[in-house]
């Protein structure tokens, strides 16, 4: 199967690889996995007090499409509000990267990782507000 040029670009030059401090109260962490292939993806966001994603990092152990999907996801969500970031759909990622049908689940993983990171951040913020 041939990867699209965009997938190859993200695979060779992944954007925003790395980790943020999981314990920091302004950081949300999403950890997701694909049951069929054993891929695992971590996506983290640092959020400002006014709800803007200041920074995003990812670490993905999986195929080229999974790496490209998460790399693109971090690129897209940086600078967005949490509400805007939540509107990103896997179909947008799949279309942008021209993923073949067998690799659509990689884009699903990236969408779920964004959502999980946002949910984690919000849970922390709610817990902090309740203190």
């Amino acid at each position: 199967m041939a990867y699209s040029e965009k997938v190859i670009d993200h695979y060779n030059n992944p954007r925003n690889v790395g980790s943020l401090d999981k314990g920091a109260e302004d950081v949300g962490t999403g950890l997701v996995g694909a049951p069929a292939c054993g891929d695992v993806m971590k996506l983290q966001i640092r959020v400002s007090a006014d709800g803007i994603i200041q920074d995003a990092k990812f670490k993905t152990f999986g195929c080229g499409s999974a790496i490209a999907s998460s790399s693109l996801a971090t690129e897209w969500i940086k600078g967005k509000s949490l509400n805007d970031a939540e509107t990103i759909k896997n179909t947008m990622i799949a279309q942008h990267l021209a993923l073949p049908p067998v690799k659509i689940h990689c884009s699903v993983l990236a969408e779920d990782a964004i959502k999980a990171a946002i949910a984690d951040y919000r849970a922390k913020a709610t817990a902090k507000a309740a203190e």
């Binding site: 950890l31 996995g33 069929a36 695992v40």
Partner: peptide, 23 residues
């Protein structure tokens, strides 16, 4: 269906273990 039917893994402990070992 162990493929999860297009759903992602819902087992945080397993994912943390997997991420830690892969890192």
């Amino acid at each position: 269906d162990t493929g999860g039917d297009g759903k992602t893994v819902d087992d945080p402990a397993l994912l943390m273990e997997a991420m830690e070992m892969r890192e």
